[in-house]
Design a protein around this nucleic acid. Structure first.
Lengths: 243, 243, 243, 243
DNA sequence: GTGGTCTAGACCACA
DNA sequence: GTGGTCTAGACCACT
């Protein structure tokens, strides 16, 4: 009945390391992809709220790693390069990714299913319109054929989808849960690199079902619908990873 | 289907702030209580892996806050003081704590129940002896009457209990889940300050039940036993908070 | 027995300043004279291995100084203007130049005489044909009457002459000496502005004499012939400066 | 008769490169030797008139090269390390050094002998006392036995000696010559690394002889005494290099 | 309008 | 009092 915080070693991380992490993660997660340009040095500095010097320290590492190429002058910038391909490395990477996907979905199923159940119990009337609106808009996107995007960029559908799942977590009124859901979704994308842009045909049907259960305050139905929904995504992604 | 990591502001924290946080948390969580002495400066420095200067910076803040008293010479050290009592502050604090406990237990129920279910499905034979041993040792502690401890210090039972819950998470083979369980337990204790040392009479019965379900690979039983166990702790703590 | 390099201030010079210096020096030394056009911006940029922007920065200064006039469009370019004449300034300039000429020739006499002596001692057989060829070609130029050139441009004779003197320095096998000779010759021309194109009648006789001494490995003769040769040039130039 | 300055490529050198050069040269020339500490970062910055950042860029290179070791905290600093010894490299280095010494002395003999001759011709009465004083002081140093110094640091004698030779160049009234003498002396020390601290027994006798010739305005005697003096140093150093 | 470099000053952690 | 890091701003060269 414990698990007290003990006094453990302090690890201070240099700001430029943090910057490096963030940029790397952004590239890994497909926010910036080969052929894209990173924001200008000055913009990165502002977005990250650090000085240009600090940004440069991180950029220098990325350049040495061969992940970006730096060009000067107008129209220059940081060009995201194709990752160098090493078959052995790639196989290990795939294996690591499969494990990561498994872990991430274990976590998502548990956390989001729990969140859906709790949301069904605790949701306020005011939580519903926002969620309903998101479902409607996702429907429109799908009908307009804008859902599939081979480009791998963050699609309109993905943004709406994300807002829906986080919206449910928000309806639980539990901040910790909201963070956990966000984290779970983030980790899900890391190994996939967001290159994956496919949407299951019935994804939004699931959303509607979940919403309906939450509206009806049917906790168990909300939970099971969410579980089914996430597991479907899981299978799609696992199949894609093994393609 | 999104939630990409975006580039957000970097926040670097000075080492002495981190030290300060850790010491504060240790005092808040009852690891060090009024009348105790903190470890010597050099020991703190070594434990935290920072220089003595840095420790001093943190200590100075605590002294200014009146949370510790610094005494020099032989028999000196850092004496933890009684927190100053402010009734308004205290009431707000209580309210905040109730919310925090609610959130923490929401989270624990979801995450640990999910972990128990998964552990029942995935556990290997090798995972069982360790868990069984912990249950046996907790039994001994209880029978020896060493379980209750008004001192607020980390008790033998708490350590074993913690090891048991984390052991289950470990049996899922999912690192992310293990971290989530650890985090949930840690957050549970923050608002309680670990001053609370009471153990429910039947806590270890629950443990045995959970273990038995996991051994039998009965996922649903493991999940429900875990849920019941955590909810019981929840009620005990909520009652104590409202005392 | 010392004179160690000490740590002194670093002075970094902007690229456009260096460009400015070079262009100015070229004009001062008569490589470009009033009425001439400087090479086109893109050509200057290429010759100097800098960007056009940088060249423009230098050009802008020259224009402000009234040393060139910038004309746009076809037939445009950078027209080198007549330097504005100021009698007081001119007299001071002359005096400065006389001193500079004296210093430069002190240096040349010392360095090139030493180089000639050393060349006579160390020259390899392979060094001789090249020097002999240069003497022959200078003879031809003189006989063809192409030696005198009032235009102030770098003449054929001057190029050959320079190659001869540097060739001797090269025959010593001492890089430092070669640099010193090149530097001495360059400094000699700075104050004269190369407007001076007169060649002493017997200049090439001296060259032949020096070469002969070097061929014979007669160090003292090589040295004295070189000294006499340089001193003759010195007198010619000093006379011209006082005209 | 030319050697005009032509338009050649501009090479802008980053400030930190210049800093690097200076520090390296200082170490190569023995101003800072293994076991010494370089001046503190802030002091270097001030001495070199650049910012600490710029100094650090240079220091980082030296550290990567393994030429210095960086220590933090009071009493820390930049420790000059023993150069790593590589026998093949060392032999090549020796050969390069022998050539460099030969070149440097070729140059010194020529330039300083010329300077001595010119000084004898042009010296003013006011030039003599300073030179005489230096000779006297060197005598004292020798008699006091302070001349030899195995430590390799810049010795008192070396400083006086340097001042004497430069003083002669100064007495010619020719700035260019003064620079040339300074440069020659500097280059002489580079390959030797100033580890060499031996003084020839009769070094100061030579000085006295040279001074006496200059006082007497005997140009040829001044020249020949200087030549003999420098050649003696040359042999000493060449012998030392081949030890 | 991009990256490249430098500056001056500050705060920090360290010994 | 040392090096380690960051900041805010500036100027520069390039495209």
């Amino acid at each position: 009945m414990s698990e007290h915080p003990k006094l453990g070693p302090i690890r201070q991380i240099a700001a430029h390391e943090l910057v490096l992490d963030q940029i790397r993660r952004s590239m890994d997660s497909g926010q910036f992809r080969p052929g894209d340009r990173l924001p200008a040095e000055r913009d990165l500095a502002e977005m990250l709220d650090v000085s240009r010097t600090t940004v440069r320290a991180a950029i220098a590492v990325l350049e040495r790693e061969g992940r970006i190429s730096v060009r000067r002058g107008r129209g220059g910038g940081f060009l995201v390069l194709e990752p160098t391909y090493d078959p052995v490395e790639a196989r290990q990477e795939l294996k690591r990714n499969k494990m990561a996907v498994r872990d991430a979905f274990d976590y998502r199923v548990i956390v989001e299913t729990g969140a859906a159940r709790l949301a069904a119990e605790r949701r306020k009337a005011a939580d519903l319109p926002k969620l309903a609106d998101l479902v409607t808009r996702m429907d429109e996107v799908i009908k307009a054929g804008r859902a599939d995007d081979a480009s791998g960029h963050v699609t309109e559908f993905q943004l709406l989808d994300s807002a829906f799942h986080l919206g449910i977590a928000e309806a639980t009124g539990n901040q910790q849960l909201l963070e956990a859901v966000a984290q779970g979704r983030q980790r899900m994308w890391l190994p996939v690199g967001a290159i994956f842009g496919h949407i299951e045909d019935n994804a939004n049907d699931h959303h509607a079902e979940i919403l309906s259960a939450i509206r009806a305050k049917d906790a168990e139905l909300a939970a099971s619908a969410m579980a089914e929904h996430i597991n479907e995504t899981r299978h799609t992604i696992e199949a894609w990873l093994s393609r």
